[in-house]
């Protein structure tokens, strides 16, 4: 009965803090820059000095799927950073301010509190990503030509578990730490490691890592392969990343149950 007011409060808070607007807008801004700079690149080069007069620069115009896939791969690091900033204080900040102790003396289980936080930030992340990719893809299509939307949406769906992993690990850290900055720092460190290190640890670990999943998503969006081929490539990555999500979700929950507020 009490999970409903918890979730409602979280959404109310998203609105009051404008997170519900900022996150999608920042996601759009981060991704849409790519098609714009790609389009302007020849002109920028032509206007830049230092090239002898009469030099002809021949840059092949990239295709729309290529532009969009670059947008996603460029988005990864900054998008991760934004999600960490948005979610790092959700539990740690409430512990630091003392609101958590006001809440936990009421008949609210920590499980419901934790679940409400996770559900809210998952929804925010998924919604923002869908809006961001939708607008960026539409704009890319205007500038560079037709896209296959089935590939775009499927690629996005394949990519989303990576963003959810960022949210899960940040909330998990937020359960453990008693201040938002500590939680954010720990989550950032962890995400840098998990997104960059596995590719050096052999083919299998690379395939099941978030990096592997990003590659599968890009392969889907690039439209160089059929949907079925790209989907099969994504299976190990999906399995790996969803498992990580699962593990850190329960770890965060456990840490919150164990922690003394």
């Amino acid at each position: 009965m009490t999970s409903y007011p918890m979730i409602r409060k979280e959404f109310h808070e998203l609105m009051k803090t404008y997170k519900i607007l900022i996150v999608p807008i920042v996601f759009i801004a981060l991704m849409i820059t790519q098609p714009i700079t790609m389009k302007m690149l020849p002109e920028i080069l032509a206007n830049s000095t230092g090239l002898p007069k009469g030099t002809v620069i021949n840059i092949p115009t990239p295709s729309a799927p290529e532009v969009l896939s670059t947008a996603i791969s460029k988005f990864s690091s900054l998008g991760t950073f934004v999600l960490i900033l948005v979610a790092m204080g959700t539990i740690a900040g409430e512990k630091a301010s003392g609101v958590a102790s006001m809440v936990f003396v009421k008949p609210v289980s920590r499980a419901k509190y934790y679940l409400a936080k996770a559900v809210t930030y998952y929804a925010l992340t998924i919604g923002s990503m869908l809006i961001g990719i939708g607008i960026t893809a539409y704009y890319t299509q205007l500038l560079f030509g037709q896209l296959d939307w089935a590939h775009v949406w499927l690629g996005t769906l394949i990519y989303i578990p990576n963003l959810l992993l960022v949210v899960t690990t940040t909330i998990c850290a937020s359960s453990f730490f008693n201040n938002a900055v500590g939680a954010g720092g720990a989550s950032l460190l962890f995400n840098i490691v998990i997104f960059t290190v596995p590719q050096f640890l052999g083919k299998f670990l690379d395939m099941v890592s978030p990096g592997g999943l990003t590659n599968a998503a890009i392969m889907m969006i690039q439209e160089n392969s059929t949907i079925a081929e790209a989907a099969i490539t994504a299976v190990p990555g999906l399995a790996g990343v969803l498992t990580l999500n699962f593990v850190f979700f329960f770890m965060g929950w456990y840490l919150l149950e164990r922690s003394e507020i």
């Binding site: 009965m1 009490t2 007011p5 808070e13 301010s97 003392g98 609101v99 006001m102 609210v108």
Partner: peptide, 22 residues
């Protein structure tokens, strides 16, 4: 030192807490 969700008003907080108690 009681702490609240500072963006709420007293009435909003009371209603929220009331719902937590069912």
């Amino acid at each position: 030192i009681p702490a609240f969700y500072n963006y709420m008003t007293a009435v909003e907080w009371m209603h929220w807490v009331g719902k937590l108690y069912g």
